[in-house]
Design a protein around this nucleic acid. Structure first.
Lengths: 253, 253
DNA sequence: ACGAAAATCCCAAATTGTGAGATTCCGACT
DNA sequence: AGTCGGAATCTCACAATTTGGGATTTTCGT
């Protein structure tokens, strides 16, 4: 681990429970010597990634907000999903949102709310679980076997709890069904009393880059309605993929 | 400039116009040797600040989004301003938003929309101009003389264009009036046909940490309404300050 | 399986980073 | 306004870490 890596580990200190750190606390936590720590802090501060708050302490800085704003505005996936999400949300009261796949991580990146009292919210930046919920399955179903096995093996307990299978092979069987249907459905796996319906988004490459998800209240979703919503979610995902320059073929591949 | 500083300059390459860079392009732009560049990229990638996209190229990475989410959720200013913003937006159709002051930069951090067809939007991360508009004056009015002079001197042309004064002394006179009133008003300085009304937020320290701003359509805002809105904005800013643990005394100091 | 581009490795030279302690700076008090 | 205390920076000797040209390996796409 080189000097730059060490410097960047300072960013990992900040958490929701502990968003503010003094230099002394950082020294204790990281073991860096005083001048070294201050050199690192100076570098991060001049880059705007951290800011010193009045009094004594450091927090994450404005550059983080700026960069995320930039990312959001320049993200072709967000742009492509905007209209499909709006259309989708208008079909049924609930929340329609877009979740990007980052290799080993799922993050909400955009959402449209069409109910006055949403059960849960899915704002940009909210992490979604990797091993349960409709989104998880909608993405994993389209990953190569090797990755499915790796992720399955590392999260067996969570997959089992969600009812996706007790073994890697069972999990893969569940994922094959999702792939056949082109859509995943989950009942209260992420939020109680909420049904999640998700389908993958492609940008031309072999792996999905995101998923479109619609969450609605579980009460009053009869099989016919569910079927209608599944179709709508698939269509939204497909429209998004097409804007990203992906032929429809990939979707069913 | 040390190695870590150079590494972080890579983040500055990304812009809305150019959100994706190949390694070759980065080498050409920065002058880093190939192995050096790849070492830097590896470091940033393992920190999640950049991601390599399928094909060939790099973009900003998921950690940026995660960190901003964290920042937003842990930000006491955002939390303190939530209810006051909602209340404020309900008073008149328009947009009520909160702008944080970061030393030399103003960034929107939260907003509430109460009109169906907003003239402009003020999403988290949007930068606001430093030298024109109600927000600018609401913040600058409460900075120490030295900083007012520095910022005034560096942006004379922009202040003049906004009608805030042709010289540093004139600008300071404008700011004194804002300070006396406790609120700043601007007619179409940032967005045409929109009136901005802003007041500063304090957290107990001597300098403001943010401003509350309300923007409404210029047409149909008679003097009486304006006076009512000014009072409402001041109250929202004051309420926010009080939640942050600042006595009301500071506001008029 | 093959070829091209992308990413990593190797290693000698030397630039840069490190850290203990002293010092300066800045803000908070009276 | 003056003084105190903690926060941030400086100094400098030592050496560890970074650098980069070129070769090599890996990873895709076809």
């Amino acid at each position: 681990m080189n000097s730059a890596d060490r410097l960047l580990t300072l960013l990992d200190l900040f958490s929701e429970a502990r968003p503010e750190w003094t230099a002394e606390e950082m020294m204790a936590e990281t073991g860096f010597a005083r001048p070294t720590l201050y050199r690192y802090l100076k570098t991060l501060k001049s880059a705007g990634l951290i800011a010193s708050v009045h009094g004594a302490g450091f927090t994450l800085g404005p550059r983080v907000t700026e960069l995320d704003y930039l990312m959001q505005r320049a993200d072709p996936v967000v742009a492509a999903g905007r209209d499909p999400l709006k259309t989708l949300a208008a079909i049924h009261p609930g929340t329609a949102f877009l979740v990007r796949w980052y290799g080993r991580k799922l993050l909400c990146v955009a959402s449209e709310v069409s109910t006055l009292a949403p059960r849960s919210s899915y704002p940009r930046g909210r992490p979604m679980p990797l091993a349960r919920g409709a989104i998880s399955r909608a993405i994993l179903a389209y990953l190569p076997k090797r990755e499915q096995e790796a992720i399955g093996g590392e999260n067996l307990a969570e997959f089992a709890r969600a009812g996706s299978g007790e073994t890697v092979e069972e999990i893969r069987a569940t994922l094959r069904r999702v792939r056949r249907d082109g859509v995943a459905v989950a009942y209260g796996e992420v939020t109680p009393d909420v049904v999640g319906i998700a389908a993958p988004v492609f940008d031309g490459g072999p792996e999905p880059v995101a998923a479109v998800c619609l969450t609605v209240e579980e009460t009053g979703v009869d099989p016919a309605t569910l079927a209608r919503l599944e179709t709508a979610v698939k269509r939204a995902a497909q429209e998004t993929s097409e804007v990203l320059g992906c032929g429809t073929a990939r979707q069913s591949a």
